[in-house]
Structures are given as structure tokens and as C-alpha cells.
Design a protein around this nucleic acid. Structure first.
Length: 470
RNA sequence: GUCCCGUUCGUCUAGGGGUCUAGGACACCGCCCUUUCACGGCGGCAACACGGGUUCAAAUCCCGUACGGGACGCCA
């Protein structure tokens, strides 16, 4: 039997990080088993549907590299089939018409809650003959759930979970306007699509019992279930905007790499011994239900950031140049032409190992691609009146260098330190750093100077000298 | 309120009766390296929610309590 898993997002206009993890796990399991991973848009609620909202989710999936094996299908498109199934259930006596009004139901729930009883539909119309039905009154169709005994769901993560059938009520499968509800639609679609494993947030665990009732009434085979614990915010409870970013789109915009997000999400609720850094290839090899944790996990932004720092160092320099380009455009409104890209590429080794996100990388890369138009406060401390001779000394030494590379630059700097600062290199380097970068932190200056080139270095030294003397 | 699920360092987790004076990672704190900031190296701080059982032996099994989360829609 081929394993088929699914990811069924509602078109909410964003890919919540929790949903992204659900998608990841479904993807991983399908790939691990050599099966299929399919997408279905849960848009039975037409009010929420919009093509743009769907596209955002597909884009996020694409960015994460979770490729799927079908053309994403719309649940709404299967509406007639859902209705047909409901009618079939009605015909077989497995469902019935209920004429209760929403107000009546609300009242029923209120009293039940007040009395501390189980809140469930009381089955008022379950056994009433058709003759008692009010003429021309609107009705909903409800499934006939078993009323005695108990039901057990064997979950791959949660184990056996038992619920008394009296807790389960006769859920509505067709609304009074004749449209199918989610409860019916998922069952029919999962069955029709041949879904073998349903992996979703454990907020759906209770629904599983109701859905299984429908499977049984229809005489269909049930899928295997795996209910994943939810992701909480740093302070417990739902991960919300208040904590920071919550959507894949936002993490992308904050400069995180897709491999970072995948790796982080994988480790949130799943583990394989002490493994921390896990590539997608390895994840596919290793992923199994065994490794899934039962308890909810809190989202930790610091760990995400540190993982990203790791993947930035691992990433190809060419790729990083491409990835950082839009951030540079956005932050500094600078378009990178070919020479600038070449400069950035040459300096990337030094830059990438101190940036934790692409946003930081853009900030740090700025001096390579734009003139120094100002010096920050800390840089100014190194551009003091009495240090101007250091810059002049550097300029004199650099001017006569033929091969302006890392090693000769270093030799020149060290020589100047010997001559002017009792060998203290820092006395020479900090003013140089301020002059070349406008700040007090940067990659190795021997490297920076080489990448910038002799002409540019001397230009910046002149500018700094002028700044001090003016 | 009713039902369901969970509870190991601040956080993510390893652990599945003895090898646990509980391991790793992130964060934090020191030290080293060093032209700055990072990286890196070394070291440190820090946890089995609580109470009962079962057992020669429990972080590991059972029960209860507490706390946390989820579900109780003509939403998905």
C-alpha cells in the first residue's frame, strides 16, 4: 500500500508556523515511506476563500521546498459529491433531518452547561417520524452517532485514546442551506483521495471520534492518525503575533533561510537522539512517528537565530549574494550591479560568519557597496584629532604597495604599529576600521582592504583625514 | 462546567526499571584566542511538578493531586 499524506490548509492568507510544521511532518513521512504528499485547500467556507490567500500558502510551501504530488485541489469543488454522500446516508437511515433553530440549539447548550452536563445535541429529531416535521421549515442533516458504549482511537502519537459515546453527539453534516460541513467534507475527501495517514494538530483529536463515526456509517476504511502536539508561544498558550513572527512569510522577511526553518520546526516536537543539525535528506531518512513528542513545545526565537547563523556559514557565497540582494534594496535602496556583486562575493566569507540573519548580513555588507558618508559614534572615537597621523601613515605605506593583497597589507599595518604604537596593532587597526567601514566592527581589515582595492582604500583614508581635520 | 491530552535544566530535548552523583543543543556566566564584532576552544550555572503505591531497585510502571494546554459551532 502506498502511503498518502495530505496538507489541508484553510486559505487564511498566511502560513502559520504551526501549519508549516504539520506540512513538514506530512511531507517527511510521505517521502520517508516513498509515498505521496498532496495538498487540498479547505475552502468549504466560501466567505474566507480568495485566490491570493491560497497563493500565499503555496508560495510558503514552495519556499520551504515541500513539493507536493498533486495539483492543489479545492474542497469546494467537491461540494456535490459531499452532498450526494449525505443524501445516501439519509436514504440508508444513517442520518436524519433536524429542524431545530440555531437559537433553540444555543439555548439547549446554555442549560446543559449551566447544569454541568455534557454539552451535546440532545437528539430531539433523531427518532421523530417525518410526519411531525414542520412544513417548509429549514432543516440540517445530522449523522446518527452511536449512543452507548465507547470508542477508541489508536493514534500513532497519542496512543489509544478512549471516549464514551455519550460524549459524542449527532454532528451536522449538511447545513440548512444544503452545503456540507467540514466534518463531512474531510472524511469524504480523505477517503476519495486515498489518504492513508492523517497527521494534524492535536486540537483535532476530539474531531477524530466524530469523523470515525462517519467512516463507520459509510462502511469505509479509516486512515491512520497521528495527532501532533501544538506549538506554544514563549509564554505558553497560543503562539501569537505578540511574541514576534508567526508566519513563514514573516520569517522569510526577517532573513531566515528555509533550511533553518525546516530544521528548527523538525526539532520542535521530534527528535532523533541528540541530533541537532539535520538536513532535509537526513530528515527524510530518519523521520518516523517514534520520534514525535507528546507534549507541546514553546517556540524559541534565540535558538532559531543560532541555527540560522549555522546555515548562513554553510550556504554558498553566490547564493547568499542573491538572497541578500532584496534586503539591500529594501534597506538602502541600492541596486547591486555586477561590480558590486563581485565585491560582495569576495567579501562574503568574512561577512557571513558574523551575521545571524540576512537582515544583519545586509547591514554588515553596506560598507562594501556604498560610500562612507558618515561615521557612527563609536567609529568617531577612533577618528580623533591625535590619531590622524595614523591614517596618514597608513596612506603613505599603502601608496607604495604594488600587490595590494591581504599579506602585504598586514605587513604594512604591523610595520606601522611597530613604528608608531609600540607594536600595538589595535592602535592602527581601529582608526583604519573606522575609515573603511564607518563603524567599529567588521571582518578582518586585511581582507576588507584587499576586497575594496587600493584605490578605494586610499580614497576612504583621505575622506577620514578630511573629516578629522575639518 | 464536561471530556481529552500533557508535565526532565530558562527553552528544545536524550532517557523507555539498575550503566543517571540525569546527557546534548540554544540562552546565560567565566576564561582562552584576537585588529573590532562575531566564530571557535575550554569551563561553569541549571531539571526528573507534587504525593502515594508496585519493585531488591523508578526520571522510567500504576493511582491521585496540582499546574498547563486542547475540544465542546449550521468555523475549519
Amino acid at each position: 500500500m502506498t502511503v498518502i499524506t495530505r496538507f489541508p490548509p484553510s486559505p487564511t492568507g498566511m502560513m502559520h508556523i504551526g501549519n508549516a510544521r504539520t506540512a513538514l511532518f506530512n511531507y517527511l513521512y510521505a517521502r520517508h515511506m516513498g509515498g505521496k504528499f498532496v495538498i487540498r485547500i479547505e475552502d468549504t467556507d466560501r466567505a474566507r476563500h480568495s485566490d491570493e490567500a491560497v497563493q500565499v500558502i503555496l508560495d510558503s510551501l514552495d519556499w520551504l521546498g515541500l513539493d507536493y504530488d498533486n495539483t492543489p485541489e479545492s474542497q469546494f469543488a467537491n461540494k456535490q459529491r459531499h452532498i450526494d454522500v449525505a443524501h445516501e446516508m439519509l436514504a440508508k437511515g444513517n442520518a436524519y433531518k433536524c429542524y431545530c433553530t440555531p437559537e433553540e440549539l444555543q439555548e439547549m447548550r446554555d442549560t446543559m452547561k449551566e447544569e454541568g452536563r455534557i454539552v451535546a445535541y440532545n437528539g430531539k429529531w433523531r427518532d421523530k417520524p417525518e410526519s411531525e416535521a414542520p412544513a417548509d421549515a429549514p432543516f440540517v442533516v445530522r449523522m446518527k452517532a452511536p449512543q452507548d458504549g465507547h470508542t477508541v482511537v489508536s493514534d500513532e502519537v497519542q496512543g489509544d485514546v478512549k471516549v464514551e459515546n455519550k460524549q459524542l453527539d449527532d454532528m451536522i453534516i449538511l447545513r440548512s442551506d444544503g452545503t456540507p460541513t467540514y466534518m463531512l467534507a474531510v472524511v469524504v475527501d480523505d477517503h476519495d483521495m486515498g489518504i492513508t495517514h492523517v497527521m494534524r494538530g492535536d486540537d483535532h483529536l476530539n474531531n477524530t471520534f466524530r469523523q470515525n463515526v462517519i467512516y463507520d456509517l459509510l462502511g469505509w476504511d479509516k486512515p491512520r492518525y497521528a495527532h501532533l502536539p501544538l506549538i506554544h508561544g514563549p509564554s505558553g498558550g497560543k503562539l501569537s503575533k505578540r511574541h514576534g513572527s508567526v508566519s513563514v512569510e514573516e520569517f522569510k522577511n526577517e532573513g531566515y533561510l528555509p533550511e533553518t526553518v525546516n530544521n528548527y520546526l523538525l526539532r520542535l516536537g521530534w527528535s532523533h537522539g541528540d541530533d541537532e543539525i539535520i538536513s532535509m535528506q537526513e530528515a527524510i531518512k530518519l523521520f518516523d512517528f517514534d520520534g514525535i513528542n507528546k507534549s507541546a513545545a514553546k517556540f524559541d526565537y534565540a535558538k532559531l537565530e543560532s541555527l540560522n547563523a549555522h546555515y548562513m556559514v554553510e550556504a554558498d557565497n553566490d547564493r547568499l549574494v542573491d538572497l541578500v540582494t532584496p534586503f539591500i534594496k529594501q534597506k538602502f535602496n541600492i541596486d547591486l550591479d555586477e561590480p558590486k556583486k563581485k565585491t560582495l562575493l569576495a567579501g562574503m566569507n568574512g561577512l557571513k560568519e558574523r551575521a545571524k540573519t540576512l537582515v544583519q548580513l545586509a547591514d554588515e555588507a553596506r560598507f562594501y557597496i556604498a560610500d562612507i558618508t558618515s561615521y557612527d559614534e563609536k567609529a568617531k572615537k577612533h577618528l580623533d584629532q591625535y590619531l590622524v597621523f595614523m591614517l596618514k601613515g597608513l596612506k603613505d605605506k599603502f601608496k607604495v604597495l604594488d600587490n595590494f593583497n591581504h599579506d602585504v597589507i598586514e605587513a604594512a599595518c604591523r610595520a606601522l604599529a611597530e613604528e608608531q604604537a609600540e607594536g600595538k596593532l589595535g592602535k592602527v587597526m581601529m582608526p583604519l576600521r573606522a575609515a573603511l567601514t564607518g563603524t567599529d566592527k567588521s571582518p578582518s581589515l586585511f581582507e576588507v582592504a584587499e576586497v575594496l582595492g587600493k584605490e578605494e582604500v586610499i580614497k576612504r583614508l583621505d575622506a577620514a583625514i578630511e573629516f578629522i581635520e575639518k
